[in-house]
Amino acid sequence: MAIDPIRPTDTEARTLARTIIDGAYFGALGVLEDGNPLVTRVAIATDDDGCPLTLVSDLSLHTRCLRKHDSASLLLGEPGPRGDPLTHPRLTLSVRAACVDKTQDRVERYLAHQPKAKLYIDFTDFHFIRLAPLQGYLNGGFGKAFRLTAGDLHSLTPPGGTAEGLNKS
Results as ranks from 00 to 15, higher is better:
A2L: 14
A2V: 08
I3L: 05
D4K: 01
D4M: 06
D4T: 04
T9W: 00
T9K: 01
T11L: 11
E12S: 12
L16H: 04
L16N: 01
L16P: 01
L16E: 04
A17Y: 05
R18D: 01
R18A: 02
I20Y: 05
I21A: 06
D22L: 13
D22I: 04
G23H: 07
G23S: 11
A24P: 12
Y25E: 07
A28M: 12
L29H: 00
G30C: 09
G30V: 00
G30N: 05
G30E: 05
V31I: 14
G35Q: 01
P37N: 11
P37E: 11
L38R: 13
T40S: 14
R41H: 15
A43Y: 05
T46L: 06
T46F: 13
T46M: 08
T46N: 13
D47S: 10
D48I: 07
P52N: 05
P52V: 03
P52H: 12
L53C: 09
L55T: 12
L55D: 04
L55G: 04
S57K: 00
S57G: 13
S57H: 08
S57E: 06
D58T: 15
L59F: 14
L61F: 11
L61P: 10
L66N: 03
R67W: 14
R67C: 07
R67Y: 13
R67P: 09
K68A: 15
K68G: 06
D70M: 06
A72T: 07
A72S: 07
L74P: 04
L74D: 07
L75W: 06
E78D: 14
P79F: 08
P81S: 11
G83K: 11
D84T: 15
L86M: 15
L86Q: 14
P89L: 05
P89H: 12
S94I: 05
V95Y: 03
R96A: 14
C99M: 08
C99A: 03
D101E: 15
D101R: 14
K102C: 11
Q104P: 04
R106V: 10
E108R: 14
E108P: 01
R109D: 06
K116A: 12
K116N: 12
A117R: 07
K118G: 06
Y120P: 01
I121W: 01
I121Q: 05
D122N: 08
F123P: 13
T124L: 10
A132R: 02
L134M: 12
Q135Y: 01
G136F: 03
Y137S: 09
Y137P: 01
L138E: 02
N139Y: 01
N139Q: 09
F142Q: 04
G143K: 04
F146M: 02
F146D: 02
L148C: 03
L148P: 02
T149K: 07
A150H: 11
G151N: 10
G151Y: 09
D152V: 10
L153W: 00
L156D: 05
T157L: 02
P159G: 14
G160K: 04
A163R: 11
E164S: 13
N167R: 14
N167M: 04
S169R: 05
S169G: 03
